[in-house]
Design a protein around this nucleic acid. Structure first.
Lengths: 141, 141
DNA sequence: ATTATTTAAGATTTTTTAATCTTAAATAGG
DNA sequence: CCTATTTAAGATTAAAAAATCTTAAATAAT
């Protein structure tokens, strides 16, 4: 559903949202805390920086931090940034042209779920994902 | 959501369901009709044969046919056969242990959709997918 | 029986995704 | 200014998924 790069960035963003917003944190530290591959994570986070979701600073005492309050960061913005917005477009059976006039047998139902999912991702913000329980679970296993 | 091998087998099964059930059809013919890679398709269809969803015959005038009426073949049986049954188990965020006592913020909603999807795949049978409209659309693009 | 045909099965190659490595650029602190 | 540190960026490698190739086994027709 979501690429592992995308899941990693969500984990990292959730982790960052539990820290004071003005604090820079080393990508290395995030990578270790969540057991995510450093260079792979760094690459995804760079994408978030370019999308103005994160702010980064190079050099000693550098790192990354959220560019805005966690309550202003939607899940869909992370997904769009890393995976692109083409995830909710495909037919559930992989059959082409399902969007057009004549749908496949599953189309109407899938369309309904797809819309609901998209709305959920749009509505859900980082601060809603974050709680003590989740924090014990966002590490990669 | 579904692997391309799985989508291919669904396409092929739908195509077969439009033919007389006792007719053998060459995998080559299916591959050409639906624009699916021959050897890749053949491999997936062999899986269906082993699961007794298809019957095959080697040699001249050989081919494959449905092992039972298309109204007795559920979508979930194809998916389980090709992709295995682990597709509906994962957390939507990729966070581990989401099944257990303490779920992630999206868990309850995702669980609901997942259950509904699974039920839809269980209920949907080949003959329901097949109609004139769909047949014009099941070719790979 | 022999031959052409076709599925079966495993090996190989290609493509995509994931992960790592290397070097450059920037920054803070001494 | 110099150095250690850290992100940035592109190259490389590894792993997984998709696709192809090759050979074997089975079958029908001649």
């Amino acid at each position: 559903m979501l690429s592992s790069a995308c899941q990693d960035t969500i984990r990292a963003a959730v982790w960052l949202s539990t820290k004071p917003q003005d604090e820079y944190h080393h990508i290395q530290a995030i990578s270790e805390a969540l057991n995510l591959p450093y260079h792979f994570l760094a690459k995804s986070l760079q994408t978030l920086v370019r999308c103005n979701i994160l702010v980064s600073r190079r050099g000693a005492n550098g790192g990354v931090k959220l560019a805005k309050a966690s309550s202003d960061i939607t899940l869909i913005s992370l997904i769009d940034a890393v995976d692109g917005s083409t995830f909710f477009d495909a037919c559930i059976l992989g059959i082409g042209d399902c969007e057009d006039e004549k749908p496949c047998a599953l189309h109407a139902q899938w369309e309904k779920w797809r819309t609901e999912m998209h709305e959920m991702y749009c509505a859900m913000r980082l601060d809603e994902i974050t709680d003590d329980v989740l924090l014990r679970k966002i590490k990669r296993l």
